[in-house]
C-alpha cells in the first residue's frame, strides 16, 4: 500500500477540506434514490484509482465533476426513471479542469477547524489524540504515559478518526444557518431562506 499513502496525502490536502461543501451540494441536489454517503465514498474511491493526479489543477472542481458523473451514470443504470432513450450520456462526463476562485484552502482556517475538532473529542480519546498528533509522541510512549495498553491507544486513535469523519459528514447537512446546538439534527439544520439579502 505504499503508493496509496501518496494518494491519501493528496486527498488530505486537496479533497478532504472540500468534503463539507460537496456534501452540502449533494444534499441540495437531492438526487432521488441516491445516498449522499455512497456518492461521497464512491468519489473518494474514484479519486484514489486515477493513475495521475498531478495534472489536476483544480481538485475541488474535479471532485464535484466526479460526484456529478457518479450521479449521472447511476441515473443511467436506474430502472426507476422512465428512460426511453438515453444513449450518449457519457458525453456529459467531461470533468472540466476549470480554475476555481478559491484556489487554495485557507491554511489558517484549516488549522483552526482541526484544533477545534480535536478539542471536541471525548475524554481519553482526546488525550491520546493530542499526544499522538500535536506532540508527535510514538504510540508505545503514549501507552506508557497514560497507563494504557498499546491496543487501547490504537482503538482510541481509530475512534478519533471515525469521529472526525463524522464531523465532516455532518458538515454537509447544514449549508448555512449558524446553530448553537452541539449536535444539530440534520433534518432541522436544513435552511429555508427568506430569500432577501438585507
Amino acid at each position: 500500500m505504499h503508493s496509496s499513502t501518496e494518494r491519501a496525502l493528496w486527498l488530505a490536502r486537496y479533497v478532504l477540506p472540500h468534503e463539507p461543501a460537496l456534501r452540502a451540494w449533494l444534499h441540495r441536489k437531492n438526487a432521488p434514490g441516491l445516498e449522499v454517503d455512497d456518492i461521497v465514498q464512491e468519489t473518494y474511491a474514484r479519486l484514489s484509482m486515477i493513475s495521475k493526479v498531478e495534472s489536476i489543477r483544480d481538485p475541488k472542481t474535479y471532485m464535484f465533476q466526479v460526484a456529478h458523473s457518479i450521479i449521472v451514470s447511476s441515473i443511467r443504470r436506474s430502472r426507476i426513471v422512465p428512460i426511453l432513450a438515453v444513449a450518449r450520456l457519457e458525453a456529459l462526463e467531461t470533468p472540466a479542469d476549470e480554475p476555481d476562485l478559491e484556489t487554495q484552502v485557507d491554511d489558517h482556517q484549516e488549522l483552526e477547524r482541526l484544533a477545534e475538532a480535536i478539542s471536541r473529542l471525548p475524554g481519553k480519546i482526546r488525550d491520546v489524540f493530542i499526544l499522538r498528533r500535536v506532540h508527535d509522541v510514538p504510540q508505545r510512549e503514549v501507552a506508557r504515559r497514560l497507563h494504557l495498553s498499546e491496543n487501547t491507544v490504537e482503538k482510541h486513535m481509530s475512534k478519533g478518526f471515525a469521529l472526525m469523519g463524522a464531523l465532516f459528514r455532518r458538515g454537509g447537512n447544514a449549508p448555512s444557518r449558524a446553530s448553537s446546538k452541539p449536535h444539530p439534527d440534520p433534518q432541522h439544520s436544513r435552511d429555508h431562506d427568506d430569500g432577501n439579502g438585507h
Binding site: V40, Q41, D136
Partner: peptide, 14 residues
C-alpha cells in the same frame, strides 16, 4: 482512502 486522508490531515495538528 477517506479515513487515511483524515488520519494524515490530522497530522497537521503538530
Amino acid at each position: 482512502m477517506r479515513m487515511r486522508a483524515i488520519a494524515l490531515h490530522s497530522e497537521r495538528a503538530r
